[in-house]
């Protein structure tokens, strides 16, 4: 197995074009486990940690360009206010050591249905920036996840960044696990409200073959939320939203939980996160008034 460590993105893309079987390595929190357990023996590892540009982020015209190699710890510390939903998800990833190493790029590369950041990327309408020697393209998050641990990358492509709007909306993320820390999601949910345009993003994790948006629930909420009316939301609205989120799932029974529990829990998370986001919206309304 060759170990390749390019110093620039161009060099990395050239390698990837020449050797599409080379497995990209960022934090190594997934890939190295697979290697250690002999589940995977790629012909080469393509270590991307020498490419400084991948570990940077910037904001242009209200869009955050988050380098694929920025570790979760930095997202929490540096982007907590700008990308609150993503930071919430990042806080739930593994242990402090894993958060020091793991990256959103790696999460996307692995494309596990249980990956913690996926629901946020979907709900926030993120676009994944992928590059190859042929050029760069932007893949909407909802087109990125193509199957269990499969994504839309071509064999010669690398994930270089994630682009998502600096939050103007109200973001929430919640994840159920059977331990109070350091746990893989039994199910997860992300919600983004955009009161200025009556928009809603809602997405689920760990409850279908891929992370996915709960489109019907989004449409329902966008239409039914009393955006300009102050006050608490009616329970019936929250319940219906929860039902629609649960209806968007396609869960399985496995060692982490039953399909029925996942549906139930996602409905609960949907109701609760909606309540919290709406409360934040009300608070904002007051402070603006």
């Amino acid at each position: 197995m060759d170990f390749l460590r390019p110093a620039t993105l161009d060099e990395a893309l050239a390698v990837k074009a020449e050797r599409p079987g080379a497995v990209p390595l960022a934090g190594g929190t997934d890939v190295m486990v697979e290697l250690n357990f002999d589940h995977r023996r790629p012909e080469a590892l393509l270590d991307l940690t020498g490419i400084g540009a991948l570990a940077e982020w910037s904001i242009t015209d209200g869009q955050v360009v988050l380098g694929a190699g920025v570790p979760y710890t930095r997202i929490i510390a540096e982007l907590g206010d700008t990308l609150p939903g993503l930071a919430m998800a990042a806080r739930t990833v593994g242990s402090p050591q894993i958060r020091n190493r793991g990256t959103v790029g790696g999460n996307l590369g692995a494309a596990s249905p249980a990956g913690d950041t996926h629901p946020v990327l979907l709900a926030a309408g993120a676009r994944i920036e992928v590059a190859s020697v042929r050029g760069t393209r932007l893949v909407p998050a909802e087109e990125f996840y193509t199957g269990v641990k499969r994504n839309a990358l071509d064999p010669d492509e690398l994930i270089t960044a994630v682009r998502l709007p600096a939050a103007r909306g109200l973001e929430q993320f919640a994840k159920v696990g059977t331990r109070n820390a350091m746990v893989i999601a039994v199910c997860a949910f992300a919600l983004v409200l955009h009161p200025e345009r009556a928009g809603v993003g809602a997405a689920i994790g760990s409850a279908a073959p891929t992370p996915r948006r709960a489109s019907e629930a989004e449409r329902f909420l966008a239409a039914e939320l009393p955006w300009d009316t102050p006050g608490a939301l009616p329970d019936s609205l929250k319940r219906r939203f929860g039902e629609l989120v649960a209806g968007a799932t396609e869960p399985i029974d496995d060692v982490r939980g039953s399909a029925a529990y996942r549906r139930h829990a996602l409905a609960v998370l949907a109701r609760r996160t909606l309540t919290w986001a709406w409360n934040d919206h009300q608070e904002r309304g007051k402070s603006c008034a």
């Binding site: 929430q172 993320f173 919640a174 159920v176 109070n180 820390a181 609760r272």
Partner: peptide, 11 residues
């Protein structure tokens, strides 16, 4: 319960 996974604020 749930810790930083943000599953409840007391509900």
């Amino acid at each position: 319960p749930g810790g930083v996974s943000n599953t409840t604020h007391g509900e």
